[in-house]
Structure formats: C-alpha cells, structure tokens
Design a binder for these strands. Structure first.
Lengths: 152, 152
DNA sequence: ATCGCTGCAAAAATTTTGCAGGTAA
DNA sequence: TTACCTGCAAAATTTTTGCAGCGAT
C-alpha cells in the first residue's frame, strides 16, 4: 500500500503513557500488548491486523492475540477501528483526552491516508441525540477522494 | 436485529426507475438483480448480504450472485456500502440525484438504525480537497449511540 | 496464588473466484 | 448471436473460539 506523502504534525505519545492507560483500565501489560502499542505508536496511519502482526519483532505473537488485543484496546477506547473498503479493519491509536476526534482523507485508488483536522461542531451531535432520544452519541467521519499521485 | 422505531419520511423509488438506472449503466436487467433492487426498495434500512439473500423469493438466487451484484450496484453508484461494526457489510439504495447524502444514527447495542438528515456543508469538502490536492472528495459519516429502548 | 492472557489449532464467518452452461438484449 | 450473467463448488480471506499451560500482578 502506497502512502500519499502529506506529512502532518503528529504529537506522538510515549509508550509508558500508553501502558499506564492500559493499566488504568485494569488490564495487564503483556509482551504482545506492549509490542502492539509500540507498533501503533510508530505508525501514524491506520494499520490492518495483519500489518501489525507482521511488524512484530520476530513474528513473536500469535495472530489471534492481535485480534483479541485489538478488541480489548478498542473497548478501552485506546484505538479506533476503521473500514476503508478493502475488507480489512484498520486501527490507529487514539490520543489521550483527544476523544480521537480527527478524521481521514483516503485515496480510493492507492488507499493512501491523510489525517484531516476539519470537523463539525459537537452541537450537531447533541442535537441529533436529543432529537432521537439517543445517548452517548459519537460519530465517525471519513473523506474519500483521489490523491495527487493517482490523478490523471 | 431489532429496529429502533423512529419512522422517517422516505421517498420510495419505483422499480422501473431503478432498472432504468441500471440499463443506463449498460448492465443487463436479470432476475436476481431485479429481485435485489426490489428487496432494497422495500427496506429503508441497510441490509447485509445475507439478509438480502434470505429475502429472495424461494431462495432463488445464489449467494455469490448477491455479492457480485452488490459490487456491480456499488460501482454504478446505486447502492452505498456501510460497516456498522459487526463484521458484515450493509447496503442501502441511493436515491437518484440525491448523491446519497444522508447519514445514519446506529444503536451500538441493538444495531437499530435511524436515518439522519444533518450534514455539514459541502464547503468543507471543497476546502479539504483543495488543501490536500485531492479530487472528487466525498465523505461518509455515521453517528453511533444508545437508542431509547436500549438505555438503562 | 490467582486470574487473565497466550499459543496453537480448529472452526466460523465473510467474500472471492473458476468454470460450464444459460439468458438478456 | 453474443457478450454478459448465473449457479455450483471450491478457495481465499478475515475473524472468532476452545483449551491447556504460562505469566503479570
């Protein structure tokens, strides 16, 4: 998978901060989990489960463990899951306190990903919650298009 | 799957109009395709491939054909594909000319779906396209929360 | 010491594909 | 007629699960 070359200032979290967050969720810090967090930390773009797996030092941990860990991290609110239309879920770290509120601009040709800051106000979320009687309303927003390298 | 009971005024398209759209894309109108369009037409909520399959009269067509048809309809811009976090793609008809620009509010407990009109302006899309050099930028937006029936 | 976590292997679930025959246009 | 479509069956892909043993706290 190529990556469209638009760098984005990215506040990279420290690994200890990440493990602390896990601990706060009363989960154990194990080798595979630390490795997964470290890999996610080093990749500012969403990774598939297989990509994470193959980045593991010495292919050390089981693929099933990666799947289980991603579910766990997702429930703990530490990662966000994305679907970019190629049949594989992708994951990215959520920065602490940030609510994970940024979005992606995905190239439909090369699957390259650019992070996007634009977002609409939380007002709309509240309005929608109130109007429909829902609680704890969040949203997922992704943009799709054709990146500069793939045009023409 | 239960459905949260919020009705929404829904302009239902006629089947002939749908088959015409298919024809305009130079695709043949076959039994399975007409059946799929008819099923989607009767269900204003996103359906999984299996749901569509089991709604088929007399289980008449092959599951593989449904998958193939969904790809075809998607490429023709006649259906939209959604991922609501339970591992199965869901599809819904796109109304002609509407660009498919509405969104969903999905209950994270019962997977019930409510259609939502709120959307931000196309200005943001243009801004994002310009800023990143992308073309043909569209977006997908879904809201998640807990519906009235599933609270407490 | 305890309970949760992991590896392994098997299974389940989802989606894709090859091929031979059938059908819409 | 002819190119496209379909059913069937098999395979590929993605994800989940059972179980016995290991390991973080």
């Amino acid at each position: 998978m190529k990556t469209c070359s638009h760098q984005h200032t990215h506040k990279r979290q420290e690994l200890p901060a990440l493990t602390d967050r896990l601990r706060r969720h009363a989960r154990k810090i194990t080798g595979p989990r630390a490795a997964i967090l470290e890999i996610l930390r080093q990749h500012p773009h969403p990774l598939t489960t297989k990509e994470i797996f193959s980045e593991m030092p010495r292919g050390e941990c089981d693929l099933a463990t990666v799947y289980r860990s991603m579910h766990l991290l997702e429930k703990a609110g530490m990662v966000k899951r994305f679907h970019f239309y190629d049949g594989a879920a992708r994951f990215e770290l959520v920065e602490e306190g940030s609510d994970g509120h940024y979005h992606h601009l995905v190239c439909i040709r090369c699957s390259g990903v650019v992070k996007v800051e634009e977002c609409f106000s939380a007002e709309i979320e509240k309005k929608i919650a109130a109007k429909n009687g829902f609680k704890a309303v969040t949203h997922k927003l992704e943009f799709f298009g054709v990146c500069p390298n793939c045009q023409g």
